[in-house]
């Protein structure tokens, strides 16, 4: 475990090199917060609630969503594809380490860096400049746990697509397709409540909404009881376990076909 911790710390430190980049990320976030404000204001057009959500709730959801988005994108797929192309992955495989845990450790380090450098400043701006109040409640207390499960699920998708690079040389199209499917179907851009009823009923059971919709709803509507939150977290935890098991089984297959040219 100690060696994985060291890897996570290393990837956290790498983030420090790109301080200039964080400024632009925060700037991009602020512009997005503004655009989202105007967009949703014109969608609500003065209506009290839409689909059971007030303007403030929806805006908090969408605004927080954009910063959570940065946290949960692990880029493990791009990393693995790059390492196969360059042959670096061979070096990893000779180490007495588990590839999945190694990639997870990298992702965790980068996520912690982004949390400190992008998410926290954006949340501060959100509350101080845009005057959005974050309501307190049980949901907020469960948010960190839910976010951790969401990271695990998101990572499993990225890692799975990364393993596909063992089979095909071209990763751009697959990564892009995965990204669009997750972004649209997870409620990262629009709360699930706005989806057509039939689609919503299906999406609630899929792993995509467990990445963004679940943790974001915990913050948007934190004043509900265990009877609401427990099933939400249950679906999340189940998918996390299922996806970890599936990706581990898939790794066992994929490793057999891996060919590395050069290095």
């Amino acid at each position: 475990m100690r060696s994985y911790w060291a890897l996570a710390r290393g990837s956290f430190m790498v983030g420090l090199v790109y301080r200039f980049g964080f400024l632009f990320s925060i700037l991009g976030n602020i512009i997005y917060l503004g655009v989202a404000y105007y967009l949703w204001r014109s969608i609500y057009q003065g209506a009290e609630t839409l689909r059971g959500l007030t303007f403030n709730e929806t805006y908090l959801y969408v605004a927080l969503g954009s910063t959570v988005f940065i946290l949960l994108k692990t880029y493990a797929d791009w990393e693995i594809a790059y390492e196969i192309r360059e042959g670096i992955i061979a070096v990893h495989l000779t180490k007495p380490l588990d590839l999945q845990l190694l990639m997870l450790a990298y992702s965790l380090g980068a996520t912690l860096m982004n949390l400190a450098a992008i998410t926290l400043p954006t949340v501060l701006i959100l509350t101080l400049v845009f005057k959005v109040s974050i309501p307190l409640g049980l949901g907020l207390a469960l948010f960190p746990l839910s976010l951790l499960l969401a990271l695990l699920i998101s990572f499993c998708f990225d890692y799975f697509v990364g393993l596909l690079a063992f089979y095909i040389d071209s990763n751009w199209g697959i990564s892009m397709t995965k990204e669009i499917i997750i972004t649209v179907l997870s409620g990262a851009l629009i709360p699930l409540q706005f989806f057509p009823a039939g689609l919503q009923a299906v999406l609630r059971w899929l792993p995509f909404q467990a990445i963004y919709h679940t943790p974001l709803m915990l913050v948007t509507r934190p004043d509900q009881g265990w009877e609401t939150f427990l099933p939400m977290l249950g679906v999340q935890a189940t998918w996390a376990v299922v996806l970890v098991v599936l990706t581990r089984l898939f790794y066992g297959q994929a490793i057999k076909v891996l060919r590395i040219a050069g290095g």
Binding site: I43, L50, R51, I168, D169, S170, W172, G173, I174, S175, M176, T177, E179, I180, I181, T183, V184, L189, I190, F194, F195, P196
Partner: peptide, 27 residues
Amino acid sequence: ADFLVSSIGMFFSSLATLAVFWILFNS
């Protein structure tokens, strides 16, 4: 294969924002 897979990825990414509009106009 790369051309085909990339074109599929491009197709989906071309439709992402449109999907957002479509969902919004439900409400």
